[in-house]
């Protein structure tokens, strides 16, 4: 049953990339426990707007956990404390009356802050551009059933493909490493026969692109896997490593 709670928000405010930024404290009053976290922020923003203050910038779009747009740190946890959940799917019934929430943007060298809680995650697109695709022009494809894919392989590819590109793995990683994200794409395509022809090149160039973007290195802390709203497993990181070693030491690819 829904009830009403009152919260205190300590929120990072930053006018733009050049601004130093600071924490501001805002009350969030009369929050229904049926609200989603983002709806709670909406309510605070409506209030701020009417008080002639600037509302808090935060990103969101689908609000159903699939587009990967939303995401901030809540009390030190990317997407908040609930397992396998994006921020937009986190509901206020998981908080108690009187709680203080520290809300910060995802932080990494590769994620410059744009405003308040909004960061630039275009580095993730750049990594995909380096090889997160299969080179098949429109119209070139053979009949879909030409290459059978064992069901369990297809399932594992799907497990990896479920990544929504939210970048929370980077945010939660003590090293700001993007290995989980990169490995999810490399794994998906490495598991499917359609992706094998380019597997070596893909592994090498995606890792290179990832390094060039300024992400950290994987220390196998496994924070990413515990934080990931789609529960992508670090088994994929191990697979990325294998793909990389094969590519670097055995294939003829440079």
């Amino acid at each position: 049953m829904s009830k009403t709670i009152h919260l205190t928000l300590k929120i990072w405010r930053q006018n733009g990339p050049g601004d130093k930024g600071r924490f501001e404290t805002h009350p969030a009053k009369n929050i229904s426990t049926d609200m989603s976290f983002l709806e709670m922020l909406d309510v605070v923003n409506e209030q701020l707007t009417l008080e002639d203050k600037e509302p808090i910038a935060f990103e969101h779009d689908c609000r159903e956990g699939i587009c990967g747009t939303c995401g901030t740190m809540v009390n030190g946890r990317a997407h908040g404390q609930l397992k396998g959940t994006t921020l937009c799917q986190l509901h206020m019934r998981h908080f108690a009356d009187g709680d203080t929430l520290v809300i910060e943007p995802f932080r990494a060298r590769a994620y410059p802050v744009i405003k308040d809680l909004v960061v630039d995650r275009s580095a993730l697109d750049r990594v995909i551009q380096a090889g997160g695709y299969i080179s098949v022009n429109t119209g070139n494809a053979p009949e879909a059933n030409t290459l059978p894919v064992p069901q369990d392989r297809a399932e594992r590819a799907m497990d990896a493909a479920a990544c929504i590109g939210c970048g929370a793995c980077v945010a939660s990683c003590p090293n700001a490493s993007a290995m989980l994200f990169v490995s999810a794409k490399v794994s998906q395509l490495a598991l499917l026969p359609h992706g094998r022809p380019e597997a070596a090149r893909r592994a090498l160039s995606m890792v290179r692109a990832m390094d060039a973007c300024g992400f950290g290195n994987c220390s196998n802390h496994r924070e990413c896997e515990k934080t990931c709203p789609k529960e992508i497993s670090i088994v994929n990181i191990a697979r990325l490593n294998r793909e990389y070693f094969k590519a670097a030491f055995i294939s003829q690819e440079n």
């Binding site: 299969i134 098949v136 119209g139 053979p142 290459l147 590819a157 998906q188 499917l192 359609h194």
Partner: peptide, 8 residues
Amino acid sequence: QCVAQGVP
């Protein structure tokens, strides 16, 4: 087309 692109 989608299968060839790696859609699982």
